[in-house]
Every structure is written in structure tokens, then in C-alpha cells.
Design a protein around this nucleic acid. Structure first.
Lengths: 210, 210
DNA sequence: CGCCTAATGGAACAGAATTCCCGTTTGAAA
DNA sequence: TTTCAAACGGGAATTCTGTTCCATTAGGCG
């Protein structure tokens, strides 16, 4: 006698019930292949079939676990959000913000990371789940760098009540704007200007919470 | 005498040799349908087939003249770039920048324009032609608003040699960053803060060309 | 007003993406 | 170690997207 009444447990997100060995290995291979594919062809060129082939995984598995190209990117983003990058501590607000600006600049102009970020932004503009994942990614990063601004507030470099996260965002914004919106080339000078502008505005109290 | 050697002219971009009545009407209908489709389904949901149906145009025509979804968006962008929006002239740098920030904020939060801009950014991240078109669009807009900063320089509000375009970009950047990158909600306060920060940094000479 | 051909539109066609089916592999609990 | 079902893999079936063919419509010039 056969009893096959376990549809429920299995139908909810494969990979969560038995996350041991093979499943984890498949996920790692697929996310790696996804990133590689994004570097080469961007979000538009992301192809479930090719990702499966490159990851040496059955395409049925990719469709079943991730569902669509957007699902792949969303999971990749969740994976990226876990890899934390420690913030700088140079002793001055200007120095810390400059370090942040240079990190963002280096990331966006990196031949590998640049295309990935471009693709991820495209995916977020196309899919709600990706947008949420990208939001989470930056929330983590901004929170990490906000400590620089808090230290500056303690030192009296910026007014008390300054919105630390807003200062950090002000550093990244011009760089991402050039990168993804106005599609202009990004130079070292842009990073320096972004850091300087954010520091100046912060010192003047522009980012004081309401 | 027979001369049938104008195959060349026709093979290059249909719609350029005989741009009268019908052709122009078709383009208008297709671009209108494209925009409508972007509002509803974003760039990912843009479908040549459905655009053709909505525009009451043969899909062969859409494929022949625009080639792909990205081609449609690129042409839409070229169309949008032609519709100029005059810059403000309130008499003060702060006032003009605030007017600009509010315009950008209003545009991005508009239930119709918001999705279009989101889709256009996605398209630019996926396709080189769209990126170029988007770049052109913002080049036009930035140039139009740069006059505000030049007037401010004449009035002595900002140092001579200030990069006017850079000031204008600094106003938009935080708004677009929230809109497309960190995927955070956009509020009126964000517009005010962006304008104030840009004005402060400009007055301090941060945007002085090297 | 009438010709010539650019431009269009419908339908058949080709190809890629996605789903379905079912047997096989393998993690983990007994 | 044994057992059982979660998770995987290959390929057929299906659906959807994009292309090509050819007849038809309609600008623009003489």
C-alpha cells in the first residue's frame, strides 16, 4: 500500500526542511553561477537554463527552488547581505566618510562587482521581492557605517541629533546616481566630492533629525 | 532609365524615409502604449506583443521599427527628453534648488511617472542603448537647471568656478538613491534635506571645479 | 490624378522558456 | 544499518516569445 499524503510539507519552499549537505551545496553552486551570469550578461541576460548548466544542477531544481530570474537575484542579495564589511575608523568624520566613498567607488567600478550591482538594481526595479532584498542589504550596510557618524557626534564634530544613517546615505547617493541613473562615468574625484559634501552638510546641521 | 538602387535607404531604420502621417501616428500610439505598459507591469512586464495590441498596430511593425523592449524604452526616452521643463527662478539658490527637489520628488512619487522612471532605470541597467538615452535625458535636464546655479554664482551666493551641473545632480541624487537603490519611501522631508544639503555644500565651495 | 514603393498587418513558422512526469539519489531519524 | 521521504535530475510536453513571408495600405512625387 502506498500513502503519498505529504504534499504539504514539501510544497513549501524546497530546501528548508532538509538543508544538510547536498541542498546547501546546490544553493552555493547556483548562487555562484547566478553571480557569474550577471557579470557577463546583466539581469536581462540572466537565464535559468544556463545558470542550471553552469552550476551543474538540474534545471528543474532551479525552477523549483527559485522560480524565476528575480528569485535568484533576491536570494543572491540575501546571501550578500550576510557578508559584512567592517566600517572604517580613521579618527575624523571626513576621513571615515572618504573611506566609505572610496569603498563604494571601488565596488561600483570593479569589473566584477560593478555589473553585479547594476544587475541587482535592475532586478529591484523589476521585482518587489528583489526590491525588499536590496533594501535589506543597504539597511545593513548603512547601519554598519552609521557608527562613524555617531562617533563624530560624540566628538562634537556634528550637532547632537544628527541622523547618522542619512549622512551615510548622502555619501553613497551621488555615486549611485551617476552609476545607475544618469549613467555617467565614475571617477575618484566624485568619491572625494561626495564625502566632502556630506561632511560639510552634516557639520552645518542639515541632517539633524526633525 | 530605371534606378532601383535605393534599397539601402529603406533597410536602415524604417520610419525615417517617409515620416509623414501614418508613420508618425504609429510611433505616437506605440510610445503611448509602451508608457502605459511600463506603468502597469514595469520593464520586466514590457511585452512587444501586448504593446502592439494596445497600440492597435501590427506586432511586425513594432519588431521591425523598435526591435526589442529596450528599443521601445530608448525611443520613449528620446521622446521624453524633447519635452523640456523650464527651471525655476525664485531669486535665491536655496529656493531654486528646493523647487527642483520638489519637482523630482513629485515626479518620482507620481502614480504614473514613478513606475515609468523605475522602469526606465531598469532598462538602462539592462541595455546600453537605453543607458545612453537616459544619460541624454538627464544631461538635458541638468543643463536646464544649471542656470539657477550660474545665477547664484553671479549673485555671489556660491564661489566662482562652482560646477553648476554638479550642484544640480547633488539635489537629485539622494532622492533617486532612495527611489531606485535603497528602495526606501520618499517623503517631502527628503526633498527639503536634499536641497538644503546641496546648497550648503555649494556655498562652502565643495563643488568648485578642479 | 495616378504611379511607385515605403510602411504596415495578419498568419504561419521557428525557437526559447517553463512546466510536468517520474525514476534516482541522499540526508537524517529510528 | 536500515528505512523513508525530501530533494534532485533528465527529458518530454507545453506555452510563450520573437521572426519571416507575403499581401495590402497609403504617403509623396510627377
Amino acid at each position: 500500500m502506498e500513502q503519498n499524503s505529504r504534499l504539504k510539507a514539501a510544497s513549501l519552499t524546497p530546501g528548508t526542511v532538509r538543508p544538510g549537505g547536498r541542498t546547501a551545496k546546490v544553493r552555493a553552486a547556483v548562487l555562484e553561477a547566478t553571480q557569474e551570469a550577471l557579470v557577463e550578461g546583466g539581469f536581462h541576460g540572466l537565464n535559468m537554463d544556463r545558470v542550471a548548466a553552469r552550476a551543474a544542477v538540474g534545471k528543474t531544481t532551479v525552477y523549483r527552488r527559485w522560480g524565476s530570474a528575480a528569485g535568484l537575484v533576491a536570494d543572491l542579495l540575501r546571501d550578500m547581505a550576510e557578508q559584512s564589511v567592517p566600517a572604517a575608523d580613521t579618527g575624523s568624520l571626513e576621513g571615515d566618510l572618504l573611506a566609505n566613498a572610496r569603498l563604494v567607488h571601488r565596488t561600483l567600478t570593479d569589473p566584477r562587482m560593478g555589473p553585479v550591482f547594476r544587475a541587482v538594481i535592475a532586478a529591484a526595479a523589476c521585482d518587489e521581492e528583489c526590491a525588499t532584498a536590496l533594501h535589506g542589504f543597504y539597511a545593513t550596510r548603512v547601519a554598519a557605517w552609521a557608527t562613524c557618524v555617531e562617533r563624530a557626534a560624540d566628538r562634537g564634530e556634528v550637532p547632537a541629533g544628527t541622523d547618522a544613517g542619512e549622512v551615510v546615505r548622502a555619501v553613497s547617493a551621488p555615486l549611485y546616481y551617476r552609476f545607475a541613473v544618469s549613467c555617467e562615468p565614475l571617477g575618484e574625484a566624485d568619491a572625494e566630492r561626495a564625502a566632502a559634501a556630506a561632511a560639510t552638510a552634516a557639520r552645518a546641521g542639515t541632517f539633524t533629525g526633525n
